[in-house]
Amino acid sequence: MTSATAHSMNLDPNFLNLIEEATSVRHHPQVHELIGRLATIYELSSVAYVGVNLPGPAGGNRYVSTTFLPDWINRYNDQNYWQLDPVLKQGFSSILPIDWGKFDVTRPPLRRFFGEAVEFGVGRHGLSFPVRGRYGEKALLSVSSNMPLGKWIRFMPFWTRDFQILAFHIHQMVLRAEGHRDPKIKLSPRELECLKWSAAGKSAGEIGTILYLSEKTVRFYQDLARRKLDAKNLTHAVAKLYSLDLL
């Protein structure tokens, strides 16, 4: 994206191929396949993707694709580890990458949880990468490894950037598999609301009262929407809103 990054970009063909493949994936089985290949290429013990509140036809659903053993998935569901798992809890609130090594495993439930995970083939070390999506949805890509600690610590900073990029592309891939298509023009919720109320015949002042905004702010959003829609005036913008099926 920027020339400044070229020197630090990973030019490993495996990494670049993964991204290229992710961009062409359209269907669910391919999502799972690619996540498996990611584990193989990076010699990981496990890879897990979890997305929540995804847009699209299956809107609001949780999407999960992992390389976990079926036994671990069953155990996880049976014990309702969805509630306990600190990686999920933190991964869906913070935006910082999460080093599993920082969780306090002296607390018995967590010690048991991570202990069981390792028994079921999850690596001793792990990193998780939160993703924030265009529509306000969230996702988390987690990777784990059993490499020696010293090597793990050396690899982490380099992997951080790789996996930030991969996490984003995997998320985009899941959205496509879910049947979500990018609309050409994206209006923000505020812009849309302000235009919709104009379509209903309300003045900027009235809309301001309805949406608890100043009249000036309403005009501001309407003007942004008008520019995005490449419309000559507010009436034209409202007409385009309907003709482009943006409602």
Binding site: R132, G133, R134, G136, S188
Partner: peptide, 14 residues
């Protein structure tokens, strides 16, 4: 805020 999600440059200062 990540630029992959809602942010001011995209949603306000586009």
């Amino acid at each position: 805020l990540p630029t992959t999600g809602p942010n001011m440059l995209r949603d306000v200062f586009g």
